[in-house]
């Protein structure tokens, strides 16, 4: 039996918005520590790993581990019906074949309830291996989102070059090329506006902007984003 209440639905709305274009059908793996999602995108090029800790819900109750197979397009449509400030309760019974969602407006004058059918999703256990990355860049997530959007006008690929005191995003295509250099800015007042480049060795790697733009949709969830790069292993964002 799972019953979890989120004080404001906006958090789950943002999460589903960020992953719905990457993940078709996947399991919410629920246990007493929270709700986890690990799924590759449909073209098996990217992995989404998400953990919503039990502490973020109040109350949170999960009697035994259950995997809720969800179609994310459906969940995204249902989440559109929730107001940002509504509190949201998700429930699944023992041998559940539906996930129940309830949205309650702040002054409880409107209560919406939806059931979405659950499906069997084959669960292969995936995760991101612990890696000692050559370069780790911390920067404002809105800035990263903007860089990915701006450079998409020039090319479908962006080369990220991390050197000692700067990180450069370069895009070159048939019509021309563009580059954006971001420099570290220690000692800023707002933590989220900080830019740091931690380098074991310089790296220069190319990535698909299609995926980076999808990942950047999660920017509204956190003010700061960390990019971790090494040769021959996937970029971690």
């Amino acid at each position: 039996m799972l019953e979890a209440r989120l004080p404001s639905a906006v958090t789950l709305k943002k999460i589903i918005d960020a992953v719905k274009e990457l993940v078709q059908d996947a399991n919410f793996d629920c246990n007493d520590s929270g709700i986890a999602l690990q799924a590759m995108d449909s073209s098996h090029v990217a992995l989404v790993a998400l953990l919503m800790r039990a502490e973020g819900f109040d109350p949170y109750r999960c009697d035994r581990n259950i995997a809720l197979g969800i179609n994310f397009a459906t969940l995204a449509k249902v989440m559109k019906c929730a107001g940002n400030d509504d509190n949201l309760t998700i429930k699944a019974g023992e041998d559940a074949d539906v996930l129940s969602l309830m949205f309650e407006s702040t002054n409880s004058d409107r209560i919406s309830e939806f059931d979405i059918k659950l499906m069997d999703v084959d669960a292969d256990h995936l995760g991101i291996p612990e890696t000692d990355y050559s370069a780790t860049i911390k920067m404002p997530s809105a800035e990263f989102q903007r860089i990915c959007r701006d450079l998409s006008v020039m090319s479908e690929t962006v080369t990220i070059e991390a050197v000692k005191d700067a990180v450069k995003f370069i895009a070159s295509g048939d019509t021309g090329s563009g580059s954006i250099t971001v420099k570290p800015n220690q000692a800023v007042d707002k933590k989220d506006m900080e830019v740091t480049v931690t380098l074991q060795e310089p790296v220069k790697l190319a990535f698909s902007l299609k995926y980076l733009n999808h990942f950047a949709k999660a920017s509204t969830l956190a003010g700061s984003v960390t990019l971790s790069l090494s040769d021959d292993v996937p970029l971690m964002i």
Binding site: M40, S43, V45, I128
Partner: peptide, 14 residues
Amino acid sequence: QLLQCFLRGYFSSV
């Protein structure tokens, strides 16, 4: 195809 099976291996090596 090679990339995809590399990635599946990489992510399931956890």
